[in-house]
Amino acid sequence: MMYILLFDFAFILQKMGLIGVIFLITLTIAAYSTYGERKIAAFLQDRIGPDRAGPFGLLQPVADGVKMFMKEDFIPANANKGLFILAPGIFMFVACMTSAVIPWGTTLTLFGANIDLQVTDINIGILYIMGFVSLGVYGIMIGGWASNNKYSLYGAIRASSQMISYELAMGLSLIAIVMMTGTLSLRTMAEQQSGFQWNVLYQPLGFLIFFICALAECNRAPFDMAECETELIGGYHTEYGSMKLGFFLFAEYINMFVSCAVISTVFFGGYNFPGLDPSWLGGLMGPIVLFSKIFFFIFVFMWIRWTLPRFRYDQLMHLGWKGLIPLAIVNMLLTGAITLWLGK
C-alpha cells in the first residue's frame, strides 16, 4: 500500500513537472510570437520593427507585458462584471488545455528516470482536441456579450459563427486521417509516421482543409472577422483593457502555437524526421524536431496574415459551408473507398 502511494506520488510529481514545463514553454512561445509577428510584419512591409528594448528589440514582449499590467484595469459601468472578468480566463484556460494530449517526444532520460514526453496518452486524443476547440468560442462569446457594447456583441457573434462553421470541416478532414491510421490516439499516430511516412503525403487535401480551418479557428487573418478593425473597432475585446485584453491576445497566440503543434503531429510526422532518431540526445531530439516544425508553421501563419487581405464575411461563410465542407466529405469518401480497395 505504501509502495503504491509512493509510486503514485512520483508519477504525479513527474506529470506536474511536465505540465509546468509545457506551460512555461507555451507562455514563452506565445510571448515571443508577438515579437516574431511584429518582426515578420516589418520584414514583409520593408520596415525594421521593434528594436528599442534590448538587443534587436528582444525584450519587447517583456516591455509589452509590463505595459499591460500597468494600465488601468477598467470595467464598463453597464458590463456584466462577473462574466466580463471571467471571459478572458476561460479563453486562456481552454487555449492551454489543448496541449495536454500532444506527444512532444518519445521518452526523455533524465537523472536515470524515463519520462514520457506527453501529459496524457488518452485513446481519444483527437476527439479531446476537437472538444476543446469547440469550447474555444465561449471565452469570445461571453466576453463580447458581457461588455454590453454592440460592436463587441457583433464581433463575438461573428467569431463564434465562424468557429462553429469551420469546426465542421476541421472534424471532417480529421475523420479521413482517423480512417487511414485506425487510431484516435495522437501518440500512436506519431509513432506510425516514423521516418518519412508522414500523413500529409497520403492526405494532402485533408491537410489543406485542416490548415485553412486552423487559420479560421485561431481567428487569424485572412479570417480575423472577430476583430475586423475597419468595421467593428476591436471586435469582442473592444471594451477590454490592461491585462484582460492581454489575456485575450495572448490566448490567441497560444491557440496558434497549439494548432501548429497539432498540424505537425497529425500531418507532419510529429517528432519524426527522416535520418533523425527521436531518441537521440537522451530523447531531446524528438522535441527539437517537433518544435522546429511548430516554429515553421507559426511562421507560415504569420506570413499568410501579412500577405493576404481579409475575407468579406459572406465570402468566409461561402468558403466554409460551400467549399470546405463538401470538399472534406469528398476527401472522406475517397479515403474510405481507397482504404477498402487496398484492404487495409
Binding site: 481519444i124 476527439l127 479531446y128 476537437m130 472538444g131 469547440s134 469550447l135 462553429i164 469546426e167
Partner: peptide
Amino acid sequence: AVVHLIVYAGA
C-alpha cells in the same frame, strides 16, 4: 464523455 462535451457543450 468527449462526445457529450463536443455535442452538448460545444455545439
